[in-house]
């Protein structure tokens, strides 16, 4: 059985990946719910910032 596919942009796929992996990271080894939420937000923002930073560094290669 085939499943109807979806198509995400590169940025959309990266955001989805960052969100889900950040949740998993936050669930590992953090004591309280508040600490987990803070850590998940930090991981998500770091994913985003590093991805945008790498994209910016690679921009000259695309020309």
């Amino acid at each position: 059985m085939l499943v109807a596919g979806i198509h995400l942009s590169h940025f959309g796929a990266m955001l989805t990946f960052a969100l889900l992996v950040s949740v998993a990271f936050a669930c590992s080894g953090r004591r309280t719910l508040a600490m987990r939420i803070k850590y998940a937000l930090l991981c998500f923002l770091l994913f985003l910032a590093i991805a945008v930073g790498i994209a910016w560094l690679m921009y000259p290669l695309s020309r």
Binding site: A4, I6, L8, T16, L20, V21, V23, C27
Partner: peptide
Amino acid sequence: LASGGLALVGLAL
């Protein structure tokens, strides 16, 4: 949610 979400989004992609 994290593991299942990644698997299902991967399948949908």
